[in-house]
Write a protein that binds this DNA or RNA. Structure first.
Lengths: 198, 198
DNA sequence: ACAACAGTAGGACGACGTTCTACAAACGGG
DNA sequence: CCCGTTTGTAGAACGTCGTCCTACTGTTGT
């Protein structure tokens, strides 16, 4: 993967950067957010702890870089389906949202975990997060244009959908879905929302 | 409040316990969850740090005690309104849920922040959390019994409501509600859900 | 009254994020 | 082609965190 010889001298900056983000992601997935320490990531990347500060300014900056990847993945998941039927597209988007969260629970938790997002590189992070949200808005616009969704402010409508979907996924990740079949409950929620917006 | 003389010898255990939880809550509200350290809380309570371990086993145990108060407050908020009209009662409950979260954002964030809940005293915590959720189930049952809500599993229906409401509140606390009037958007969500369940 | 005990204060330990200091590798003008 | 400058590295060090250990002091049962 990263052919960085540990003892040897200078390694290209970008390679170190890449190696650190990869390592951070690996540690995050393997051991959880709490285990993502500067020392652990640096060791995993075969780099000195100072590398984090040279490249990202702080631990938060490094985490922000990981979260950028997370938001990009979320946007990809939401955009994945392009069924011509607006309702089907919206439902697929909702299902893919959940699939992404369950497949990358550590990422999702770090992205929306409630704790203040890293200040370092916050603007870039916000941009990628907004891009993911706008993928949803696009689906809503598409549905409204085709008359499948009641007319209204697409932002407003998308916010409603996001709230519900995010809440369901967040509770499920937190083990707070007390229903016997979470997937079925989630599907009910999607149907409820889409029906109400029609 | 707590007339514990700082230098004096032994103070009754229960008083120390109370003082610690009060202090932890004060620090949480004033400085955020990150500032709730064993030393800071002990100082705020006028007690030695070891008191936390004598009384609560660990920092997590102390936080769990604070969160128990939080869940109790949430239950009280959800149960507060007992309008005889089932729909009105459900809507009021939803509005009170949001009001509680906005009034106690630090508590809410710690309760649902996504990070694994404290292991110390987890069973008691779970019991209080469940009690809050069951207040919602009661409202759903009430609505179904009066024919105001479509029949179905109250747990399932309550889970749908909780998902939406929790998601909206969670996003709002995280600054992720991009709508100009969050209160109005929240109200739309409540109407959407209740209409869909009718 | 005195021994057994529960709970206290304060210091100590390892790990964390971050910073400082010193050194090694690449680069550009003579 | 050589050498000063610049860039990035490694490793030690600082303060704070959660937690534990040690010694001591009030309280309690007989």
């Amino acid at each position: 993967m990263t052919d960085v010889r540990p003892g040897a001298g200078r390694t290209p900056s970008r390679a170190v950067e890449q190696a650190l983000v990869d390592a951070a992601e690996r540690v995050l997935v393997r051991d959880g957010l709490g285990a993502v320490t500067v020392r652990a990531v640096a060791t995993e990347a075969g780099v000195a702890p100072m590398g984090v500060y040279n490249r990202f300014g702080s631990k938060d900056g490094l985490i922000a870089a990981v979260l950028v990847r997370g938001f990009d993945g979320l946007r990809a998941a939401v955009s994945e389906d392009d069924d011509p039927d607006p309702v089907a597209r919206l439902l697929a988007s909702g299902r893919n949202y959940r699939r992404f969260a369950l497949a990358h629970p550590q990422h999702y938790g770090a992205m929306f975990g409630g704790r203040p997002l890293p200040t370092e590189g916050a603007e870039e992070l916000l941009a990628h997060a907004t891009a993911a949200f706008e993928a949803l808005i696009d689906h809503v616009r598409y549905g409204m244009a085709r008359g499948a969704l009641r007319d209204g402010d697409p932002l407003e409508t998308a916010q409603l959908i996001w709230s519900s979907v995010h809440g369901a996924v967040g509770l499920e990740l937190g083990g707070a879905v007390l229903t016997p079949d979470p997937a079925a409950t989630y599907e009910s929620l999607l149907q409820l929302i889409v029906a109400g917006l029609r």
